[in-house]
Design a protein around this nucleic acid. Structure first.
Lengths: 156, 156
DNA sequence: TAAGCTCGACAACACCATTGTCGAAACAGT
DNA sequence: ACTGTTTCGACAATGGTGTTGTCGAGCTTA
């Protein structure tokens, strides 16, 4: 009977799978008119959501400071994915909203992810893929957002 | 018949699984006398390997500049995980080698990863876990190292 | 009204990656 | 052996990203 795979293979493969999907997503996104999207942008746009949000709240969701969130919003605003509007009900707040272009990028991302998933299903079979998703869901239940990735992995 | 899971769930769960394992590893590593290890350090120590290597070669393996690799080596040297020695056969080279402490951290990491994998096996069953690993292996075949993570995800 | 909190902006700082340059050493071709 | 090219490690300069701290303006509540 074969020995168990070494323990370090599991996290490595999980990361490689993630990275492969994200890279393929962005290759295709670039082809479809969004060449400036960075991996993190999609997560930020998702975190902003259809209702819009503020820099402080966005920072909380992403696990970074409000200044960092504001900086990211600056970039996304400059790229045309979001816009800032004054909140008529609270003069302190400036609500960050998705533009049409921002919504388009999310819609295309969703479509591309479906296609990529279908590719996995062709290789693995739908049953195996569902089992894989189900098992991952079982092991990672909980907080889907928590994207304090900037600075999490790196760091001297 | 149930609808397919949305396509974006797969990459998200892959990342969450990776992150959960890495976080649990470092909690346990800290308990076992390595509180200063950062997620990236383990990968760097693995990339250095038992034979040692140079800053330039390390940078190539990790996909970063030689300067960045050198900086990381500085930190690991300061923490006592590696040491630099002059190459007697080539006066230009300074070979980075693991110290005893560096080897110890890798040995403990391997053991902890085995334990974490065993935890997954208890929840999912050994068969399902093997299937999961096998499927991930099938989808991500290839270059296991290529950790140009610094700057890959982030970026304004 | 007054005190306290929240929001967004600005400044200063730290960290980490980059490119470019340089001298020393090894190597390859003549 | 000499010379030109390549490789290595160090240094300097730069840019991007995140942090804390501070401030004024505006809500909120006692």
């Amino acid at each position: 009977m074969p020995a168990d795979p070494p323990g370090f293979e599991l996290p490595l493969r999980l990361f490689l799978g993630f990275r492969m999907l994200i890279d393929e997503l962005h290759v295709e996104l670039a082809r479809q008119g969004h060449p400036d999207m960075r991996p993190m942008h999609g997560f930020v746009l998702q975190a902003i959501g259809p209702e819009g949000t503020t820099a402080v709240e966005l920072g909380r969701r992403l696990g970074v400071s409000k200044q960092a969130a504001g900086k990211t919003v600056d970039t996304l605003e400059h790229l045309g994915y979001v816009e800032r509007r004054s909140d008529p009900g609270d003069a302190r707040r400036k609500i960050v909203r998705l533009t049409e272009r921002g919504v388009d990028s999310l819609a295309r991302s969703a479509r591309i992810f479906e296609d990529l998933r279908a590719g996995w299903a062709r290789t693995l079979g739908e049953d195996r893929l569902r089992a894989l998703e189900s098992d991952l869901r079982a092991m990672t239940a909980g907080d889907v957002f928590r994207l304090d990735v900037p600075g999490w992995f790196g760091g001297y």
